[in-house]
């Protein structure tokens, strides 16, 4: 049984990773299509790094992702705190469900409504509109990631701190925030990946020369995608690996820190 479950796990990982690896293997292939492998070359990577338009789009995509994730994390964390603090059960449920509705509604509808919203307010489409809409659809994700962590926190922890004379400010910065930090980090990274992934919402609100990777790649589909895109996928995978690595290191260091603290305070 144990063998079988391990086999299953391996199989699932193969299915998940083979397409990505296939894509990246072909990024090193001479020739222009993914039909036959023609021998090793760096040419597609050279093409990619010689294409200022593509690089500018990559930089813009990362910028929007990081900045929007940062702001969404700040707003979402505050939102989660306030939902948790709401004492009336009905209000809390309503707030939470309003948050969930945004999570489940289709991207296309959110995108189209943002387009109408921005154009009626005469906000020019471009970096600003993309950033704002990304922040908007990332907030619910952050709330959902932070909230469980807040629920785990025992209320006696807060009462104890208050009894010892902690001010509200100290309560927040010394007790609550450190406790929910893993949730905040998880929310930030989820928001980041959502932003990098998104096509539907972004397509509607891009304009005036500003574009992101997903929109650019998707609109190349009619001509057939060239191997420069494969090379880009390789670079992006490397970037994701670095992100995951960074997340892992952050978690590790906070775990160690906590362990050390426990040793110091008997």
């Amino acid at each position: 049984m144990k063998k079988l479950s391990r086999l299953y796990l391996v199989l699932v990982f193969i299915i998940l990773y083979v397409p990505i690896i296939y894509l990246i293997v072909y990024s090193f292939s001479q020739g222009d299509t993914m039909t036959n492998y023609h021998g090793f070359t760096w040419q597609h990577y050279r093409d990619l790094f010689a294409d200022p338009r593509m690089l500018a789009i990559v930089a813009d995509t990362l910028l929007v992702a990081l900045l929007s994730a940062l702001m969404a994390t700040a707003i979402g964390t505050l939102g989660a705190l306030s939902i948790q603090r709401t004492s009336k059960r009905v209000t809390r449920d309503v707030l939470l469900n309003l948050n969930n509705i945004l999570m489940v509604s289709p991207d296309v509808i959110i995108g189209a409504s943002f387009l109408i919203f921005f154009t009626t307010l005469k906000i020019p489409l471009g970096f600003g509109s993309v950033l704002l809409s990304h922040i908007a659809f990332e907030i619910p994700i952050v709330v959902l990631m932070v909230l469980p962590r807040l629920r785990e926190m025992s209320p006696s922890l807060l009462s104890a701190a208050e009894d010892l004379g902690a001010t509200t400010h100290q309560l927040l910065t010394k007790i609550i925030l450190p406790f929910i930090t893993p949730g905040i980090l998880a929310g930030f990274f989820m928001a980041l990946t959502y932003s990098l992934d998104d096509f539907a919402v972004t397509f509607f609100v891009t304009g005036n020369g500003f574009s992101t990777l997903s929109v650019e790649i998707y609109s190349r589909a009619r001509q057939g995608i060239n191997l420069e895109i494969n090379a880009l996928s390789g670079v992006m995978l490397l970037f994701s690996l670095l992100l995951v690595g960074g997340y892992y290191l952050l978690q590790q260091s906070s775990r160690k820190r906590r362990a050390r603290k426990r040793e110091v305070t008997p």
């Binding site: 200022p52 338009r53 690089l55 500018a56 930089a59 813009d60 990362l62 910028l63 990081l66 900045l67 940062l70």
Partner: peptide, 15 residues
């Protein structure tokens, strides 16, 4: 973010 914004404007300027 600042670095990326700088890179993006430089890339656009270079073109």
């Amino acid at each position: 973010c600042g670095g990326l914004a700088y890179a993006s404007t430089q890339l656009q300027k270079s073109s």
